[in-house]
Amino acid sequence: MAEEKHVMTMLVDNQPGVTSRVTGLFSGKGFNIESICGCPTSDPGISRITITTKANPPVVEQIEKQLRKLVNVIKLRSLDGPKAVRRELALVCVQARGEQRTEVLRIVDIFRGKIVDAGLEHFIIEVTGEEEKIQAMLNLLEPIGIKKLSRTGPIGLIREPK
């Protein structure tokens, strides 16, 4: 069975050690974490952790069941498919001299990014979007020269009923 990327999000008790319980479960059981992102919610007692994993369907089922078993995991939902909105933030430091500088600005414009830091030989670009969009922009920037890259990995929310 093919391994595919899956995004899952969970509400957890905002207590010390909870992230370690979640990540320890992945490492202990041989599951994969592509990205992980966590922060408190509007309720300071609850945090949201969003994880992207790569696994085949039976393994995804096992991951979800094992996560639900953790006493500190309050609620777990899949963020796959059209029922959810997913976004990722990337900060990209690009080397840019001479003519490349206008080229970079054009690319930033196409992807509705922002320049958040500029120097004589570099820009730092902020861009958000679905993973594919960010990847597409990185593919264009790559030949120009990516110096540094920081990505959050996907976060997301389930859409409310219309």
């Binding site: 010390p16 050690g17 370690s20």
Partner: peptide
């Protein structure tokens, strides 16, 4: 010990 026993307890507390 809470860190050590996390994967081999049903749950643990400090």
């Amino acid at each position: 010990i809470v860190g050590i026993t996390r994967p081999c307890t049903k749950h643990n507390y400090l």
